[in-house]
Design a protein around this nucleic acid. Structure first.
Length: 429
RNA sequence: GUCCCCAUCGUCUAGCCUGGUCUAGGACAUCAGAUUUUCGAUCUGACGACGCGGGUUCGAAUCCCGCUGGGGACGCCA
């Protein structure tokens, strides 16, 4: 039996929430760091609210984050007879009583429950504060606290790493372990993730599902890196950390006690850090579907060309949405001028003529030679002939072709837009 | 309301356990400068925190107490 055996126990009554994902991550890191096991248990006792689509989504998100689990996946819905057996035992011993069709645990009075928490140290509470606990509901299904205790003991879980919000459950569960004559595991309660208003992060704060972030073009490494930084620090002023190094350095003891506010700016920054070093093919596979979805390109869009585009933009965007916004002019058929751009840069008759002449030059370049270097050479010599200042032409050129004043280096942009569109945009000024 | 948890820049944090090296370090964000055909990236710099009050001590961000503030839990949900 492994020295460390932890579990992640999601309930398939909703999508995988960032907070839950972080809990899973810390469990996983602890297991991997200690050479232990990471078990997945599905808490699907609520048959009405549990949905297959949620389960699939949770599993999918975990895999996407790289949080692989060991052994079989346990389902509480398949273990009802076990809970029943233990409930009957407590009934026989007089530690529980029937309440209608339900079975409730008689909470002993006047006892002091004290346990050592790996992040909070000592936590104490008097059982006078606790009420009797329903173990088996009238419909025969177990309650959370009961099933949780039975399963954690039965599956030989050694450490329970979960959110702070479970602290009040812990003394109740402790009393259950005691009544059942079972050895309680060790506990670590991690501080919660809060929204900007300091309330527990929830849907009203915006996107909270891991799958949403995936869809928005965040990379799993970045999300993992961000989540781990919420409450933990590698030390030495390090921030970017992932993979084996993260596993090696992780320690539950250095997890902080302070709740932290989710900050999308920092996530965006981390994502952009990972983007610039990411495998270009993978990056294309992640971003391209979003463009197709946005209706900007067809699925058969040339991948080589797309890779060039990604290369051009990779230090300029932080997620898929951001990329789409900044690159749309490359894919659209016509230029959509930003407010006032045309008036400000292209109203001058002389500049219009110059740009049209330049279009003529471009038209003379062979399709296969229409690359950044050639375009720049052609433009530079054209500039010399016309006798205009470089930037007096380049800037209007950018606006004419992109519709905006901001873009990657203009000659690279011209190349990826393609000769046909460039000539068309310039000559139809 | 009751019980529990928590408290360093706007945000994430280092430092706290083992008091002095802390005129408190880093990162995001913001602002300014350099660079650039624009933006970005990059580099420089600026702004910016130990919640308050008592102790203990020669000395406290660090230890103790109180207060205040924030959060969480009080379901036959999980």
């Amino acid at each position: 039996m492994a020295e460390v055996r932890v579990r992640f126990a999601p309930s398939p009554t909703g999508y995988l929430h960032l907070g839950s994902a972080r809990t899973a991550l810390f469990n996983w890191l602890y297991a991997r760091n200690r050479g232990g096991e990471f078990i997945l248990r599905i808490e699907d006792t609520d048959a009405v609210r549990s949905k297959k689509e949620y389960l699939d989504e949770i599993l999918d998100s975990l895999q996407w984050l790289g949080l692989n689990w060991d052994g079989e996946t346990y389902f509480q819905s398949k273990r009802f007879d076990i809970y029943r057996k233990y409930a009957d035992k407590l009934l026989e011993e007089g530690k529980a009583y029937r309440d209608g069709n339900a079975i409730a645990f008689k909470m002993p009075k006047g006892e002091c429950v004290s346990f050592y928490d790996m992040v909070h140290d000592k936590i104490e509470i008097n059982t006078d504060e606790l009420k009797d606990e329903v173990l088996i509901k009238s419909d025969g299904t177990p309650t959370y606290n009961f099933a949780c205790v039975i399963d954690d003991a039965d599956l030989k879980i050694t450490h329970i790493i979960r959110g702070d919000d479970h602290i009040p459950n812990t003394p109740k569960q402790f009393m259950l372990y005691k009544a059942l004559g079972l050895q309680p595991p060790k506990f670590a309660h991690m501080p919660l993730i809060l929204g900007p208003d300091k309330a527990k992060l929830s849907k009203r704060h915006g996107a909270t599902a891991v799958a949403e972030y995936r869809r928005m073009g965040y990379l799993p490494e970045a999300l993992v890196n961000y989540m781990v930084l919420l409450g933990w620090s590698p030390g030495n002023n390090r921030e970017l950390i992932c993979g084996e190094e993260l596993i090696k350095k992780f320690s539950i003891k250095s997890v902080g006690k302070v709740q932290s506010i989710f900050n999308i700016d920092k996530l965006n920054w981390l994502n952009s850090q990972y983007i610039r070093n990411y495998d270009p093919n993978k990056l294309c596979d992640i971003i391209m579907p979003r463009l197709v979805e946005a209706g900007l390109v067809k699925e058969d869009f040339d991948k080589t060309r797309f890779k060039k585009i990604i290369e051009l933009f990779k230090t300029r965007f932080s997620n898929a949405e951001d990329f789409i916004q900044k690159s749309a002019y490359l894919f659209r058929e016509d230029v959509a001028y930003e407010e006032g751009m045309r008036e400000q840069f292209l109203n001058d008759k002389r500049i219009q003529k110059i740009l049209k002449d330049l279009a003529g030059r471009f038209d003379g370049i062979k399709e296969k030679d229409f690359i950044s270097k050639t375009i720049e050479e052609a433009t530079r010599s054209f500039i010399a002939e016309v006798g205009i200042e470089g930037k007096d032409l380049i800037h209007p050129l950018r606006v004419a072709v992109t519709g905006q004043t901001v873009s990657p280096p203009v000659f690279d942009v011209l190349e990826v837009i393609g000769k046909e569109k460039v000539v068309k945009r310039l000559s139809s000024l």
